[in-house]
Design a protein around this nucleic acid. Structure first.
Length: 202
DNA sequence: GTTAAGATCTGCT
DNA sequence: GCAGATCTTAACG
C-alpha cells in the first residue's frame, strides 16, 4: 500500500473513540526503527483508559505533568514509569483536552527477534518476549525519550499491515476486565485477539 | 519535606 | 502462589 494512503487510513483510525480505537489497534503493527534494524510486532492485546467515568485512568483527576500527553492529540506516545522498575507504552487517543489513551499490553513478535532476545536479557521463548506491557517496551527498546513522539512520523511507528483486514475478519476479539488495577475493576475495557498465543493472560 | 501507592516482572517456594 | 525489587508521581502538611 502506498505510504500516503496508509497514513490517511491511520489518521482515520485515530479519530475513533478510545474504546473503538483500542479494538481497532488489534492486528496493527508497532515498529521501532533502531540502529540495530527494525524491531516489529503485531498488537494482540490492548486496554482503554477513559477520561470520564474511569477511576483507573491516570487522567481521572485532571491534567498533571505526567499525564499531559494523554490530553494532547491522538496518535502520540504516552510512556510512564511504574513500580520502580518498568515502563509502559500507550497510544494517546480521543479529542484534544480529554485525557485518554490505549495501553498496549502484548505483541506478537514479527521482526528483530534476535534484538528482542538481546534486550530482554535471558533466553526467552518467543511468546515471552512481548506478552506484557513492560516486556514489549523492553523488547522494542522503547525509552522515555519517545514520550509524546508522533506514532505516524517518528522512529516509533504504528503500521497498517497489508493483511490487517483479512486478519481481523478471521480473528475474534474478546473483551474482559483490565489487568492490575483496583479501581474501575468492573469495566470491560481490555481487548485481545482470541486465538493469539501471545497475549499476557487468557 | 514526607509519604503511600502503583495500568509489572521475575524468581523462588 | 507470593514476595521482593525499586523509584516516580502526586497528594498532603
Amino acid at each position: 500500500m502506498p505510504q500516503d494512503l496508509e497514513l490517511a487510513k491511520l489518521r482515520k483510525f485515530l479519530k475513533l473513540s478510545t474504546k473503538d480505537l483500542a479494538q481497532a489497534l488489534l492486528g496493527m503493527n508497532l515498529c521501532h526503527r533502531t540502529k540495530q534494524g527494525p524491531i516489529r510486532g503485531r498488537i494482540v492485546e490492548t486496554e482503554a483508559y477513559l477520561f470520564r467515568g474511569d477511576p483507573a485512568c491516570h487522567a481521572a483527576q485532571g491534567m498533571t505533568p505526567r499525564n499531559a500527553p494523554m490530553f494532547g492529540p491522538a496518535g502520540r506516545a504516552y510512556i510512564y514509569f511504574i513500580y520502580g522498575c518498568h515502563f509502559c507504552f500507550n497510544v494517546t487517543s480521543g479529542a484534544e483536552g480529554e485525557g485518554e489513551a490505549v495501553l498496549i499490553r502484548a505483541l506478537e513478535p514479527l521482526d528483530g527477534l534476535e534484538e528482542m532476545r538481546r534486550r530482554r536479557g535471558a533466553e526467552h521463548l518467543d511468546r515471552n518476549l512481548t506478552n506484557g506491557p513492560a516486556k514489549l517496551v523492553q523488547a522494542l527498546g522503547i525509552n522515555k525519550d519517545l514520550n509524546t513522539a508522533c506514532l505516524l512520523s517518528s522512529e516509533l511507528k504504528l503500521e497498517l499491515p497489508r493483511d490487517y483486514k483479512a486478519l481481523r475478519a478471521d480473528s475474534k476479539v474478546v473483551s474482559t476486565t483490565r489487568i492490575g488495577i483496583s479501581s474501575g475493576a468492573d469495566l470491560k475495557l481490555r481487548f485481545y485477539l482470541k486465538d493469539s498465543i501471545y497475549v499476557s493472560k487468557k
